[in-house]
Amino acid sequence: MTNTSEQATPLQLRNRDDIVLRLEHLVVNFKVGKQTVQAVSDVSLDVALGETLGLVGESGCGKSTVGRAIMQLPPPSAGRVLFKGQDLSNMSGEALRQTRTGLQMIFQDPISSLNPRRKVRDIVAEGLQIWRRPNQDARVREVMEAVGLDPDTVADRRPHQFSGGQCQRICIARSLALDPDVLICDEPVSALDVSVQAQILNLLEDMKQRYQLTMVFVAHNLAVVKNVSDRVAVMYLGKLCEIGNAEAIYARPAHPYTRALLASIPDMDPDARGQQGKIPLLQGELPSPANPPSGCRFRTRCPNAQARCAEVEPVMQAVADSMTPDHFVACHYPL
């Protein structure tokens, strides 16, 4: 795994042999009219074999875009995506098509990611048909059973006859059918009720144990993220703010944004209504990614911001007294 890019290797990239997925200086820009939306700017991270990386952040901060850039849908504007050491961003059509089967993605919008005119059976079998795998019917039944759908009653129906949560399970079944190495889950459980959510999370956990599945898991529910993740990466406005061991981040967030996120979790106790924590809630709006603030992107809403934050962009640094190593934060004045 050689790093040939001129830029320095970011600190948070680990030097291990079992890194399955590695993003280096990933940049994704969209042109909208005359403006350029910097959806993802310079994100570097890595995921080791059998590890789950939770990706959290404000809505619109570029989580889905990172996921899609990994799949090369669309390919990133700059930077590299290394999958098992192969650079996907340099690959051409056919090679990419072959390699990409090892990577699967569960898309954010379950209903929109199912073709309304196809039967559930065909949707789940899609990948198997494309790659002419043997024993398709048996495999389809197996994955449908695995996600808690009854193959006999659902296989012949079309997606519009299912509820949001049922659609999500169809999506999960489809992505598992090809036995991927890496599964990118873009909010796979946010449409599900907590009991099905628990089933799916347990299922993903089992799959992980059984097939050494490596996952990138995007979600808004921080309790869910903590449950599934080994490491957690926090993004804000296209940048990585903090990355590290899940327990460590939840116990002692080092970035002011991470702290604000954790403080906004709705409290389960109805008596605690209206008296949530002492930590100030986030004020103001997410700035436009077409025109991000100078220096630290979080400074317009950061309670700890100082003059320096507007001038110098903070770089990743190790968190001094964290519970675990490999905990990094991009802030001049970490908590």
Partner: peptide, 12 residues
Amino acid sequence: REYVLAAKAMGA
């Protein structure tokens, strides 16, 4: 629609 993306991701 994302089902087109999903098909691409499958290698269609």
